[in-house]
Amino acid sequence: MRALLAATALCAIALAQPAGANAPTCDRACLEKTLDAYLAAMVAHDPSAAPFARDARFTENTAPIALTDGLWATATGMEDYRITAADPDGGQIAYVGVAKEHDRPVLLSLRLRVMGGRITEAESVVARDVIHFRNLRQARAGWAADLPAGDTTTPTDMRAGVAGYFDGIEQSDSSLVRFDPACQRLENGLQTTDNPNLLREMMEREGGPSAPSPLPKPPAPSPVEEKPEGASGGGMLSLGCAAQFDTGAFQFISDIAPRRGLVIDKEKGIAFGLFRFNHRGLHTSYRLADGSEMADPFGGQPWSMQMAEFFKFRDGRIWLVEAIGTPLPFGAPTGWENDE
């Protein structure tokens, strides 16, 4: 009911603003309401209940499908998990949350562009192969809060931080990015920094070891064969953001391009973007910085991942990272090639 009221209010706003048809006239509250209207309409399987522009563009996992298809056809509800980043000047809001698809949770990331009160772009990434949702009940407090008074983070810091982060992965070099010492990362709900239990967690899939699905999923990582002390043996999973970069354990990622769809939230100090991880699979193992040998986690196959990532900054440094991703055929287009 609340969603209906919100949708009604939005329609009224939209009708009241015909003059600003192509201007980003939606402030933060308006962007959040538009997002809520989108989610409510999705769960109702009724795109007419959200303020879509007539020529709105929509993709789910890079495919340009109808707004009555994909998660719009299967969503049955929303859970509470929520991170948003709003950029009223650019007319964009980014979101990650947990949707229910036939009552089974899936991770949903959205980038909406709202012009003249209407949604003109909706880019969704749906991760349907999430291992567990233990870390996805409620977002950590840092995500919702505005930057505290005195925090030095600037939009320039955030853009540089994002660029340096992906350069640092490509080049196995943490000196390219300014990390807060307490930096932590969630990837599809798994804590992938400072987590010596990660490998065990990955085996503990909710709903049993074999989810009943023929869906595309990331290739299963090979069992760890190496000695546990070395970075190659899973030791890197106990390390923090910066130290992980320097182990060389990310060498199986060939490049991260394109990097696009940036949404910079100046008040919260959050940067969001869409990033394509390309794995060429050219080697079946890699030599790490400590001299140990790491098997390619995916056995030497070419494949890509579409990632949607949120970065929370603290005094100009990356403090929290939240990544949502879904596997794609190697080299797949983003679905938004002509727009940027």
């Binding site: 890079t62 495919a63 340009p64 499908i65 298809d69 994909g70 595309p216 879904t326 794609l328 797949a332």
Partner: peptide
Amino acid sequence: MASAPYGMP
């Protein structure tokens, strides 16, 4: 057969 993103053109 191989998996593709749903609705891939």
